[in-house]
């Protein structure tokens, strides 16, 4: 915190900095959501298969 405030007179480019971290978080979360959705639908399909097998 101390370092951050002490050197506040340097060129900040905070817009670019926040853009980089924002893009990174969006991409990682986007991919995580894609996997989580896929996992959920596969778990449902597996459950259905198990139930169908029991009925047979």
């Amino acid at each position: 915190m101390y370092m951050f405030l002490l050197q506040a007179n340097l060129p900040s480019n905070l817009g670019y900095l926040s853009a980089a971290y924002f893009v990174a978080w969006i991409m990682l979360f986007g991919y995580l959501i894609f996997i989580a959705k896929k996992r959920r639908s596969l778990e449902i399909t597996l459950e259905n298969i198990k139930n169908e097998d029991k009925e047979l």
């Binding site: 050197q7 340097l10 900040s12 480019n13 980089a20």
Partner: peptide, 14 residues
């Protein structure tokens, strides 16, 4: 915690 780069400033945190 990481110090700010003396030449590049905060953008170096990328």
């Amino acid at each position: 915690v990481a110090p700010t780069d003396i030449n590049l400033g905060h953008i170096q945190r990328i």
